[in-house]
């Protein structure tokens, strides 16, 4: 298997302003994503999990080119996506697609579903209207919708149907990689399961790679082949799904797993996460998890832990693990 996409040292900063406002205060930068590296293999689902504000979505948006990265590289089939301008990126749009969290707002409310999907085909060079129509209906059927939705407006569908439609609009041009940014977090659990099963089936059938972003560990565990746990803009641990759940090494990962409600075990030990994520400034040093980690030592404060492989395919960034 070869790496379809490889992210090396990705960095994205956003300006933050003090209380005195945009004009009078000194411009400072916070790093939403800092020195993030991972890769996705062909046909693989890579799950990115972490709490709100850890930079998961920013990573996804950088890959599809919605935000410009400030450093690092995103190599897709040997091309660095960070260095492409809009025009050079356009041919690759066909291969890298995105499923949005709020599918309804990601669909033009003024147009019929058939037109929305048809237009995507049109801009990618399918000129014949009948051919487009066939393809649209075929895609609708693929995601569990039917011909009768062709002339519907997006707001006439239910939440689950809209999310299916969102997936259809990503799939219709036959991408190689789909970035799913929290695609099921707005849905109730039974619909979540339907959508996830459908995604898995479609992925197997079409052999697409997927970057699946979610804060829901259950969902991530269900869908991913490999998982990256993200905290404060970097990866803290990465392993295949089985390894990670059997043997979590990083204190953050352990705490994250502890936070999942378990209906069967009632008297287990429970380490709740305390405190909040700090703001990662550009001069940030040491371990990202330092201020919340129960095992933190002085070394963790000064020295940034290396993201190193402890066993085959299992990487951890922690001084305590060696």
């Amino acid at each position: 298997m070869s790496h379809l996409i490889e992210i090396n040292g990705l960095k994205k900063t956003f300006p933050v302003y003090g209380k005195t406002g945009k004009i009078f205060s000194q411009k400072e930068y916070m790093c939403a994503v800092d020195n993030l590296s991972f890769y996705i293999e062909e046909g693989e689902t890579y799950g990115l999990v972490g709490e709100s504000g850890c930079g998961k979505s920013t990573t996804g948006r950088a890959i599809v080119g919605l935000t410009k990265a400030d450093g690092g590289s995103i190599l897709y089939k040997g091309k660095d996506l960070c260095k492409l301008n809009d025009k050079q990126f356009r041919p690759l749009r066909k291969e890298i697609q995105m499923v949005f969290q709020n599918a309804l707002s990601a669909l033009n409310p003024r147009r019929r579903i058939g037109d929305i999907l048809g237009e995507i085909l049109e801009i990618h060079g399918m000129k014949d209207a009948d051919e487009r129509r066939e393809q649209v209906i075929e895609t609708l059927k693929k995601v569990g919708l039917s011909e009768e939705h062709y002339f519907r407006f997006p707001h006439e569908l239910s939440g689950g149907q809209v999310q299916r439609l969102g997936i259809a609009s990503a799939l219709i041009i036959g991408p190689r990689l789909i970035v799913c940014d929290e695609p099921v977090s707005a849905l109730d659990v039974s619909i979540q399961a339907q959508i996830l099963n459908m995604l898995i089936e479609l992925q197997k059938e079409l052999r697409i790679s997927m970057l699946f972003i979610s804060h829901d560990i259950g969902v991530i565990r269900f869908i991913s082949d490999r998982i990256g746990v993200m905290y404060l803009g970097t990866l803290t641990e990465e392993a295949s799904t089985e390894t990670l759940f059997a043997n979590p090494l990083h204190p953050y990962t352990k705490m994250l797993f502890d936070a999942v409600p378990d209906p069967y075990i009632t008297n287990r030990e429970f380490h709740a996460l305390t405190g909040e994520q700090p703001v990662r400034t550009q001069a940030f040093q040491g371990c990202a998890f330092y201020n919340r980690c129960p095992y933190a030592s002085d070394r963790c404060k000064i020295e940034t832990p290396e993201f190193k492989e402890v066993e085959s395919g299992h990487k951890v960034a922690c001084h305590m693990v060696s």
Partner: peptide, 26 residues
């Protein structure tokens, strides 16, 4: 700033098309 304009960018819509087909009707 709407999500569907962002989505259109990801889907490969050009600036002019977004301007005339999405922003103007709105």
């Amino acid at each position: 700033e709407q999500a569907y304009v962002e989505a259109a960018k990801v889907q490969g819509f050009g600036n002019l098309r977004i301007l005339w087909r999405m922003i103007l009707p709105g």
